[in-house]
């Protein structure tokens, strides 16, 4: 998929000199990144490095205070309509799943297509069932999120994001809250999604996943991109000492 991503060259996400402060704390310190259509980006780094904050600025769950973020040709500003348009094109999967506990799995998935895209219920449910088959749990459609395992919940969350037919998928540590035996079932879905040509930004510590599907990896530390490159470069020949140190800590066990 690497070659494929290189050939469709125009960037879908452009970040130029993005800064973000929490009070006096400088969380993002000048992030520059371009993501091409179909590219799979893995963002990794120590906790507190700003990688989650960064991915959340792309759909404006966090506001950036300086710099420019352009998603699919639309610049993120205070204009609410632009923000809603970008959110419609951008699916997000959270560490804590964040499914709606008062709705069934099916209603979780069909809610946004019906209320935001204006689809009919029948249409939305048909797409939802296709997506549930794709993530491997069509038999759970009528259950409530609380009745599912963590891995199943996260797969529902992926289906829910995909139901809006987004152009971009953002994953914010999607496997960090899962028991070890459930991580694989979620990663399998993500690998399949990456291979289908979806543009993805994934914040994760799963280096096996990164090695398998990432086109580009970015190492974050202290609110900055320390190093970026293909998985071969990052794993085989990291230039920066901090990258080497971090990789040795993550890969040693």
């Amino acid at each position: 998929m690497s070659a494929n991503a290189q050939s469709t060259a125009d960037p879908i996400i452009i970040c130029r000199d993005v800064h973000k402060w929490y009070g006096n704390y400088h969380a993002l310190r000048g992030i520059n990144m371009e993501v091409r259509r179909g590219e799979v980006v893995v963002v990794f780094g120590p906790s507190g490095s700003g990688k989650s904050t960064f991915i959340r600025t792309i759909n404006r769950l966090e506001e950036h205070q300086r710099g420019q973020i352009i998603v699919d040709g639309i610049e993120l500003t205070h204009d609410v309509r632009n923000i809603e348009r970008i959110r419609m094109e951008t699916g997000m999967v959270f560490q804590q799943f964040n499914l709606f506990p008062h709705l069934t799995v099916l209603d979780n998935i069909t809610l946004a297509p019906i209320w935001v895209r204006g689809w009919t219920k029948a249409q939305a449910e048909e797409i939802a069932m296709q997506l549930l088959k794709r993530v491997g749990i069509p038999e759970q459609a009528r259950k409530y999120p609380g009745q599912l395992s963590g891995g199943q919940q996260q797969r529902v969350a992926i289906a829910r994001a995909l139901a809006m037919q987004p152009k971009i998928m953002l994953f914010d540590e999607p496997t960090s809250a899962l028991d070890p035996e459930m991580i694989k079932e979620v990663l399998d879905v993500m690998v399949e999604l990456a291979e289908s040509g979806m543009t993805m930004i994934v914040v994760t510590h799963e280096m096996g996943f990164a090695r398998a599907v990432a086109d580009t990896m970015y190492f974050f530390d202290q609110g900055q991109i320390v190093e970026s490159g293909t998985p071969d470069q990052i794993f085989g020949d990291p230039r920066e000492a901090r990258t080497k140190l971090f990789l040795s800590q993550v890969l040693s066990h």
Partner: peptide, 12 residues
Amino acid sequence: GQYEAARALGLN
């Protein structure tokens, strides 16, 4: 997280 998930889906 409930607010964030709802907004991320594009709900106003």
